[in-house]
């Protein structure tokens, strides 16, 4: 996985915000979400065509629901696409995603500020 793979992805998927050097991100989580898609693509979980079609569908769906379509929300759609594709491909169900999201939320709440937030089995009991 290298910058060439990232550039290729940015060309294969319409709308990826980028400059001359490749994709640009406004917040760290956006780069993480981008990197996760790249990794799953390399593992053969989906093709870029498949990804682009699903992302396009998520964007349409969001716009129908009132998304401003300014580009600001692009990575929100990207994240929704990731969640949908991992569920559709049987990698992780919606229930599992929710369960882990809630566990992280719990881990976050019990972690004093400035300490690394770590997930433990106890976080799943809530």
């Amino acid at each position: 996985m290298d910058s060439a793979a990232a550039l290729k992805a940015a060309h294969a998927v319409p709308g990826v915000p980028q400059d001359d050097d490749g994709p640009v991100f406004k917040e760290p989580w956006q780069a993480q979400a981008f990197a996760i898609a790249l990794a799953l693509h390399e593992r053969g979980v989906f093709t870029w065509n498949e990804w682009a079609a699903t992302l396009g569908d998520e964007i349409k769906r969001a716009q129908a629901a009132g998304d401003p379509d300014t580009g600001e929300t692009y990575y929100m759609h990207w994240l929704a696409t990731l969640e949908r594709l991992v569920a559709e491909k049987g990698v992780a169900s919606r229930e599992m995603l929710t369960e882990y999201r809630d566990a992280w939320d719990h881990a976050c709440d019990r972690t004093p500020h400035g300490k690394p937030i770590e997930l433990t089995p106890a976080d799943f009991a809530h």
Partner: peptide, 12 residues
């Protein structure tokens, strides 16, 4: 949003 990204990353 960060929670959702972490959930994905952990599971994957």
């Amino acid at each position: 949003t960060q929670l959702r990204v972490r959930a994905l990353e952990t599971i994957l």
